[in-house]
Amino acid sequence: MKYLKTTPAKCKGVRACEKACARTINKSDDPAKSAIRVTAKDGVFEINVCNQCGACIDICPVKALSRNKQGVVMLDRKLCVGCLMCVGYCPTLSMRTHPDLREPFKCIACGACARACPEQALEIAEK
């Protein structure tokens, strides 16, 4: 199963990942539209992003969430009704929503953030 592996210890809070992600998945420069989020807590950076656990798949009332061939959990926006139950039920709070966007969004393990990270804190991996 493909997923984005994070190494928070390497993170220096550059947040290039957020910009790359927002641009890639939502065509925006607004970091609030990024599926990956970096936060600083007591001088230590934390990285929050979907780990592809799939808990959201069974929560969805319209079967809009499913795994693709690589095991990545994907949202079919055509089916999605924007109810955001997947956002509320995500065990790691990694399903995102934004007032400009009707449907939620999440990490699709595309690797854009990993390529943008100058500290190699992110990588696409298998588990």
Binding site: G82, L84, G88, T97, H98, P99, R102
Partner: peptide
């Protein structure tokens, strides 16, 4: 059905209340 078919005045306000309750 889509999530904005009521064409709400402030979709974000509705979303925030919804996610909080979920």
């Amino acid at each position: 059905v889509k999530g904005d078919m009521n064409r709400p005045a402030d979709l974000g306000r509705v979303q925030r209340a919804g996610v909080k309750l979920h």
